[in-house]
Amino acid sequence: EDYYQILGVPRNASQKEIKKAYYQLAKKYHPDTNKDDPKAKEKFSQLAEAYEVLSDEVKRKQYDA
């Protein structure tokens, strides 16, 4: 799945936009606030993985290549 789609940001998003999108979605899908939703944990880990790659310039360049 596309990391940009997961975070809901365009491919040319700035680091600030990526961070903002991640924090909004992380708050929304955090397992502690969605105890009754088994998919929230999965969504949250996808968000974390996408953010880890896109927030790191080197990893992001490799991902975009």
Rank of each mutant, 00 (worst) to 15 (best):
E1N: 13
E1H: 15
D2P: 03
Y3G: 01
Y3W: 06
Y4H: 01
Y4F: 02
Y4K: 00
Y4N: 00
Y4D: 00
Q5L: 10
Q5P: 01
L7W: 00
G8F: 04
G8Q: 10
V9M: 04
V9G: 00
P10S: 11
R11Y: 08
R11E: 04
N12M: 07
N12W: 10
S14D: 09
Q15M: 13
Q15L: 15
K16P: 09
I18N: 00
I18C: 02
K20E: 15
K20D: 15
K20N: 15
A21P: 01
A21G: 03
Y23A: 12
Y23F: 11
Y23R: 12
Q24T: 14
Q24D: 12
Q24E: 15
L25D: 02
L25T: 03
L25N: 05
A26T: 11
A26L: 14
A26D: 03
K27M: 13
Y29K: 04
Y29A: 05
Y29M: 08
Y29N: 05
Y29L: 12
H30S: 11
H30E: 08
H30V: 05
P31T: 09
P31G: 08
D32C: 07
T33M: 13
T33S: 12
N34M: 11
N34L: 13
D36C: 08
D36M: 09
D36L: 10
D37H: 06
P38A: 10
P38V: 11
P38S: 08
K39Q: 09
K39N: 13
A40P: 04
A40S: 09
K41M: 15
E42W: 14
E42Q: 12
K43C: 08
K43W: 13
K43T: 08
K43D: 04
F44G: 04
F44I: 06
S45T: 09
S45M: 14
Q46R: 14
L47P: 00
L47Y: 05
L47A: 06
L47T: 04
E49M: 14
E49G: 07
E49V: 12
A50N: 00
Y51S: 01
Y51K: 02
Y51A: 03
E52D: 13
E52T: 11
E52N: 12
L54I: 04
L54T: 01
L54S: 00
S55R: 08
D56H: 03
D56R: 02
D56W: 02
D56C: 04
E57V: 12
V58G: 07
V58M: 11
K59N: 04
K59P: 01
K59R: 13
R60C: 02
R60K: 07
Q62D: 12
Q62W: 11
Y63H: 03
Y63C: 02
D64I: 02
D64G: 02
A65Y: 07
A65P: 04
A65C: 11
